[in-house]
């Protein structure tokens, strides 16, 4: 696939890609934009190549997930290097958390709270399936795990999510 055709397809799924990047960056939209920019840079550089073995969106989501994980690691390292002892709390509080954007709805607060309390894999598979409309197989490809493993995370995630929502007082 040539660059122009790929660019057009990427433009078509840009919104979905950004939404997934936001989730991978713990709902920090600025970080998500940086991550997406790095993903496009990887594509332009040829470090990320679409070989057509999966759907474009699945491949793109997988690249975003890996890039966001790298970005998070680099940021942790940078914060650890630059932040003097005692300043950590101030930096953490300046970081927009999931609750800030969803404070207008108690129910959404409860949901976002429950999501943040889920283990990483369970959170990712639930978001991919229920939020982004992927199948469990596609979610497995994005997460870089086997389908069996993804199914286990999916089942456990749903159970845990229900328990957390009940605990947090979720009402329909």
């Amino acid at each position: 696939m040539d660059t122009d055709a790929l660019r057009d397809q990427l433009a078509a799924c840009h919104e979905d890609a950004f939404a997934w990047a936001v989730h991978c960056c713990r709902r920090d939209r600025r970080d998500a934009e940086e991550v997406l920019q790095t993903v496009y840079l990887k594509i332009l550089d040829g470090r990320a190549r679409f070989d057509g073995r999966s759907a474009l969106l699945t491949w793109l989501f997988a690249v975003i997930r890996r890039t966001a994980a790298d970005h998070r690691r680099r940021r942790l390292l940078r914060d650890w290097w630059h932040v003097a002892p005692g300043e950590g709390e101030a930096v953490a509080s300046s970081n927009p958390g999931p609750d800030r954007e969803l404070h207008d709805s108690e129910q959404r607060d409860a949901l976002s709270g429950a999501l943040t309390r889920l283990p990483e894999r369970q959170r990712q598979v639930l978001l991919l399936v229920f939020y982004h409309g992927c199948t469990v197989e596609q979610a497995a490809a994005v997460m870089g795990v086997g389908v069996g493993s993804a199914r286990r995370h999916y089942a456990r995630g749903k159970e845990r999510m229900r328990a957390l929502l009940e605990e947090l007082g979720w009402t329909e």
């Binding site: 939404a19 936001v22 954007e101 969803l102 207008d104 709805s105 129910q107 959404r108 949901l111 976002s112 639930l126 978001l127 229920f130 939020y131 749903k158 999510m161 229900r162 929502l165 979720w170 329909e172």
Partner: peptide, 14 residues
């Protein structure tokens, strides 16, 4: 279905 509704609501809020 309940989870789908919940996530749809989250998506709307996003």
């Amino acid at each position: 279905d309940q989870l789908r509704r919940i996530f749809a609501e989250l998506r709307q809020g996003d």
